[in-house]
Simulated scan of single mutants.
Amino acid sequence: MPPTEAHPGTAGPPDADPSADPSADDTLDLHLPEEFLALLAQAERDRSGAGDLLDDLADWGPTATPAGRFQLVPVRLDRDLPLVTRWMNAPAVAAFWELQGPESVTADHIRAQLDGDGRSVPCLGVLDSTPMSYFEIYRADLDPLARHYPARPHDTGVHLLIGGVTDRGRGIGTLLLRAVADLVLDHRPRCTRVLAEPDLRNTPSVAAFLAAGFRLSAEVDLPDKRAALMVRDRALRHVL
């Protein structure tokens, strides 16, 4: 099951600066129940007075990349379902996302996010006006992933697949991962790091994250895979 193609409690005293040492608490084993994650999401909505857990992602706008002008555009099922379904049925994608099949399979996966509380937003990656990739931007600290790593408030996760075979294997994934991580850090000031958890067997994906400035923080056993926990730290964004 997703995540991924290139497919997500804090240690120390409450007043510690979490960005001072990006790797200081990466080995802490923390497990949070689903009910607690739901309460955290509700508490944050109550504090902000709004229902948007990802800081108005739809309004982030485009950004320039070496490959062209890139933008995250939230998925609309009535417009985008056939395209995303076709991508999900590509063998290289299906091997890791496991969403191959008729449109109803993809629709159920996307609709669960669209009908949820906003902790995960499915998006098309649009490069120079052409939809060519699919992203899920999600609150890793409010996701079941938080049971498997030392989550920090506002941790933001990324799942990615490259749609067209001609766009794979030539560095586009790396460019887009860096661009999306920068978008998250620019538009989510409370987020100190961007995370991903590609399947360890997906070596092109892991390599793309490393080239995009992510570091391998840990290997984690998730219900459906053994994953590489990749982290891009705000404190190191201009170094890596």
Score class of each variant (00 low, 15 high):
G12S: 07
L210W: 00
A24M: 03
R170D: 05
P122A: 11
R234M: 11
D117V: 13
G61F: 05
A235V: 10
D80S: 07
S120N: 01
G163A: 08
V231T: 11
W97V: 12
F135G: 09
T27V: 06
L127V: 08
P198Y: 11
D143T: 06
Y138P: 00
T156C: 14
P82V: 09
D224W: 05
D155R: 07
V184D: 01
V220T: 12
A90F: 00
A67H: 05
P82F: 11
T10Y: 04
E103F: 02
D52M: 07
G68H: 08
D108R: 15
A16E: 12
D186M: 03
W60H: 13
S133N: 06
A208P: 05
L176T: 05
T130V: 15
D17P: 04
D224M: 06
E34V: 15
C191A: 10
N89W: 12
R69Q: 13
D115P: 01
R193I: 00
A140P: 03
L200D: 10
E44N: 04
Q42R: 15
A50M: 00
G12V: 03
R237D: 14
T130W: 03
P153L: 14
V121W: 00
I172T: 12
D108L: 08
D115Q: 14
L160R: 02
R79A: 14
G101S: 13
A207I: 01
S133F: 07
H109F: 15
V206R: 11
G49T: 06
L200H: 10
P153F: 13
L53Y: 03
D143W: 05
R152E: 13
E103H: 08
P13D: 13
H159F: 04
R232M: 02
G125M: 08
P66F: 06
V239Q: 14
A218V: 00
N202S: 07
Y149E: 02
Q100F: 00
P91G: 12
W60T: 10
V121N: 01
Y138T: 02
S129Y: 01
S205E: 02
L32T: 15
D117Y: 04
R215M: 03
K225P: 03
L40M: 14
A211H: 09
P2Y: 03
L39Y: 03
P14Y: 11
G171A: 08
G51K: 06
L160P: 00
E103A: 15
A6K: 03
T85C: 12
P66Y: 05
P131H: 03
P18N: 04
T27G: 05
L72R: 04
V180Q: 08
D46H: 09
F96E: 11
D224V: 07
A218I: 01
G213F: 02
G118E: 09
R234H: 09
P122E: 08
A151I: 07
C191Q: 04
T106A: 15
H7D: 12
T63P: 00
S205F: 02
M230F: 04
V231P: 01
Y149H: 11
C123D: 06
Q113L: 14
P13A: 14
A235M: 08
R119Y: 06
L177G: 10
